Computed example of a mutant assay.
Amino acid sequence: MTVFRPCIDLHSGHVKQIVGASLSSSEPAALKTNFVASHPPAHYASIYREKALTGAHVIKLGPGNDNAAREALAAWPGGLQVGGGITVENAREWLDAGASKVIVTSHLFPSGRFSLARLQALAAEITPARLVVDVSCKRVGDRWVVAMDKWQTLTDTEVTRETLHMLSKYCSEFLVHAADVEGLCQGIDEELLTGLGEWCTIPCTYAGGGREIDDLALVKRLSNGKVDLTFGSALDMFGGTGVRFDDCVAWNNAQKATPDVA
């Protein structure tokens, strides 16, 4: 069944909603921010805990976010996933800090080239059950190419059935930001969603472009209920006007009550 998965995006120590394609270390002035929270990360983690919204991801977008991430994890130990700068050297540290799972991207792509050895070492260190592989991507023609370094650098790896099948041997979930539409609230990438529904054999969460509550039903239909959806900038708790958080909670409760009903 398709459910709503919440998020806490951290930038410079604050909860923010950012247009994904504008993230750049070399050109910080180009950053486009849709929302900066007045509440600390723990505020959102506590709300997710109260509503039993499991599988939320805390993403550290660049440096200066470790303390904020730890604050969120402390508010709900074992209830949140954390990503951003995760390596084989620090993965266990974040699990010990309270993360249910760690999310990894850039560490698997030294110099932009996929390293199976790094993935295997990470899975061996913390077990696949505690590992989420982030295959966030950008569209290149009719393909989707995994992007790293805050979605600015294309790697040598495409998001395909074969890629996801190989990766699934070493992790328990996928996270997929459609970086081209992330933060724009202009609609999801329907072709990518359809592909993920056909290709994924383990849980998968999609983020990017969600703008209305009906997108949950759309994602459920396109993916045959195999992919979950994250709302960010469209969500009222993040300053958006397109999606009410309470409606997302109601959707999840309805899916759990009648999981086979569209």
Rank of each mutant, 00 (worst) to 15 (best):
V3H: 12
A74Y: 00
A52I: 07
R118P: 00
E27N: 15
L53W: 05
L175R: 01
G85V: 08
E190A: 12
S24N: 15
P110G: 01
H57P: 10
E212C: 14
L119M: 10
D149R: 15
I202M: 02
T230N: 08
T205L: 15
A75F: 04
A250P: 08
V140L: 11
E93G: 11
G55D: 04
N253L: 14
A262S: 07
Q152H: 11
V133W: 08
W151R: 10
A234E: 00
S168M: 02
R5S: 14
S106E: 14
S172I: 09
V36W: 00
D228W: 09
A75V: 04
N90W: 05
V58F: 07
V146M: 10
W144S: 04
L31G: 02
R161W: 00
G209K: 11
M166T: 14
G83L: 02
W144L: 04
D156C: 09
K150S: 14
A69I: 01
S25Q: 06
T201W: 03
D149I: 10
K169L: 10
F238I: 11
A52W: 08
G13A: 12
M148S: 15
N90T: 05
T163W: 06
V227E: 07
A37Y: 07
L184A: 02
E50W: 08
S115T: 02
A250T: 15
A37M: 08
D134Q: 07
E89F: 10
D247F: 06
C7Y: 01
D9E: 13
G197S: 08
W76L: 06
D214L: 12
T54N: 09
F114W: 09
A37G: 10
N67I: 07
A29G: 00
I8N: 11
T157A: 10
V219N: 08
T258G: 00
L61M: 11
G195N: 12
V159F: 04
V176W: 00
L184I: 07
L53S: 09
R92G: 00
L193H: 04
D189K: 05
V140T: 07
S115I: 05
M166I: 11
E162L: 08
R139I: 04
A179R: 05
L235K: 01
K32H: 09
G210Y: 14
K51L: 02
A123W: 03
T157Y: 06
C7F: 03
H11K: 13
E93L: 10
V146Q: 13
L80F: 06
F35H: 12
S233P: 04
G232F: 04
A30I: 00
V227L: 07
K51Y: 01
